[in-house]
Structure formats: C-alpha cells, structure tokens
Design a protein around this nucleic acid. Structure first.
Length: 309
DNA sequence: ACGCAATGCAGATTATACTA
DNA sequence: TAGTATAATCTGCATTGCGT
C-alpha cells in the first residue's frame, strides 16, 4: 500500500557535485557486462546483484542501504534495467530510492544512473543527474498530492507482512522518462523483453534464467554453441529482425548448457565496449568467463590527478 | 478486438537467528 | 560447526487498463 511521504522537499536545491574520476568510470562502463561479477561476487544478493556488481566494477564495496550517497558520500549510483519497446525506444521499471526512514531528497540530489540491458545485462549508457531548482520543483509536487490518485513520481510503498511494514521510497518509471534520463528516440542497442516467455522458461528450468548465445551465422536452422560442442536450433530470421529468439539446444549437451533455457541474440545490438575487447564482452554475455578471468572496470580506468570537486 | 504499456503485487533469494 | 527455520529484501512479472 502507498503512504504519504515522510520527508518534506528542501526549499533550495543541494549544490551540484561532480567527480572526474566517476565520470571517467561511467564513460568507460559502456559495454560492460555485469553478469560474471554478479555471479561470482560473494555477498551479491539475488535481487540487487547486478547493482552490486556495478558498484564492485566502480571500485566500491557492496554496502547497501546506507543513508550517505554511494560515491564519496556525494553522488548516488543507481542501476536501471532497460529494454526496448516495440518502436525501439527504451523503457524501464520504477526504482527503489531508499528506505522510508532515509531522506530521499538528499539521496537524489546528485545521481549517476547507469542503464543496463535487461536480457544481456550489458551496460548501454549512463546519465548524471542533479536535482536542481527546476527538477526539484517538479518532483516536489509529489509532496502533498494523494498517494494514489495524484500520480506522484516519488512515492512511499510498504508491503504488509506478519511482522509489520517495510516501507521504502520509489521513483516512478514515468519520472525517469520525463526528466530526459532515457533517450526519447529509438536506439540501436539493447533488446526487447518478453516477460511471458521469460517466466515460462524459468518455470520450466527450476527458476534458472535462460542462457544467452550470440548468433554466429546469418542463415540456416542452427548456430553453434560457444560453451560446448552442441548447436542451437533457432529461427535466425527472427533473431535478426526482432533482436533475439528462443532456441533449443541440440545434442551433444555440455554441463553448462543442460537443464537451461536458451536464447540466441543478434550480436550487432550489443554496444561497442569502451574498456573491453569484443571477445571479452561476448564471453561474458554467453556466461563462459571462469572466475580467474574475471576483471574489474576500476582496474582499467586510471584515476585522474584532479577529481574536479 | 487486440496489442502494448502502466501499475502494483508478491516470488525468489539471501541474510540472520536459532538449534543440535 | 553444520544444518535448519525465519526474516528481510527489491525487482520481475502478472494484471489492469488504455489506445488504436
């Protein structure tokens, strides 16, 4: 259920904060696959595991739900899962800001939003956001409007549980679009997402998510599996038209490929990685990066002398 | 009537506490 | 210390509702 906001919006915006080091990392994160780090990281929780993986790649520890912004106490980092709509524009879900006991206005004062593709978990881009006078004025309308019928962009929602409530602040997906954080025009990167198919496949394979494989041939009825010596039967016309298609793994079936759903994707929809080779990106998306080959973005981006604070 | 997008619920998973 | 039960967590997905 929805509740009234607990924190009154500030009368004046907080100052703009920036950091040249974080800007360099954000720029380098294009084409960063989050899957391997999410899988291998100890303590990376199920729901927030890709957000934790991003923080690890940026050189941070995975501490969640702290009142202070993630980066040097100045800038909050938020991972947004995105997917393509039918017309090629990007869409996203609403995001959690913080627990209802924490001041969301302070958290949102300066934010780095990082957008990752929902199907492949590859970073597509980012946006720095400052809650300045204009955007503060818009978001402040959420204070005082009816939580249900006023359609606020910042809400508190709590879930009934036996032990009481666990209320938290959330930002609507509408707000992210309205503030221009997602591109308004169709994009060439990322994939559509079919949640019905995703759910059915996960249900069929004991809750495990489908494995992603890149199409390596233009035509025919199968494409080779990069994890084993088998092949994937797939509608390649659909792959190159829609971006991806469900696939069936034929025998022989390697250990990693057994008991999993499969999807084949058009590799041309992956972004050009800024800080990795194409082969590193492909291996990560296809889930064939051994622990010892796991690399960290922060180790590849030199820290500038002047952070420009 | 149909397909897609907005909305809100709760499943799936991990963290923590507790027991043997 | 290992194993089991309970609590806490947030995003993924089902449903609703709208527009064509």
């Amino acid at each position: 259920m929805r509740l009234p906001l607990r924190h009154r919006p500030p009368a004046t915006p907080e100052p703009l904060r920036r950091c040249a080091h974080l800007e360099a990392l954000a720029e380098a994160s294009v084409g960063l696959p989050l899957g391997p780090a999410a899988r291998h990281l100890v303590g990376a929780g199920g729901r927030g595991r890709h957000g934790n993986a991003l923080q690890w790649h940026l050189g941070l520890d995975c501490h969640d739900s702290v009142a202070q912004p993630d980066w040097e106490g100045r800038i909050e980092i938020k991972l947004i899962s995105v997917w393509q709509r039918a017309d090629g524009r990007l869409a996203c879900d609403r995001i959690k800001v913080c627990e209802a006991s924490v001041d969301p206005w302070a958290k949102l004062a300066n934010v780095l939003f990082v957008f990752a593709d929902r199907l492949t978990r590859v970073v597509l881009g980012h946006a720095f956001f400052h809650l300045g006078a204009a955007s503060l004025g818009r978001l402040a309308r959420s204070w005082g409007v009816d939580p249900h019928f006023g359609r606020p962009d910042l809400i508190i929602e709590s879930r009934d549980s036996a032990q009481g409530m666990s209320p938290a602040y959330y930002l609507s997906a509408r707000w992210l679009v309205g503030e221009g954080l997602l591109p308004e025009h169709p994009v060439h990167w990322g994939y559509r997402f079919d949640n019905r198919w995703w759910r059915d496949v996960r249900a069929e394979f004991a809750g495990r998510s489908p494995l992603v494989t890149l199409a390596r041939v233009d035509s025919g009825e199968t494409t080779p599996c990069s994890r084993c010596s088998g092949r994937l039967r797939v509608d390649l016309d659909r792959v190159f038209e829609q971006g991806w298609a469900p696939a069936h793994h034929t025998m022989p079936l390697g250990d990693r490929c057994a008991l999993r759903g499969h999807v084949v994707v058009d590799p041309r929809r992956l972004p050009e990685p800024h800080c990795a080779s194409d082969e590193e990106l492909f291996a990560a998306v296809e889930g064939r990066v051994p622990d010892e080959d796991l690399w960290r973005l922060a180790d590849r981006v030199p820290e500038p002398e002047d952070h420009g604070h």
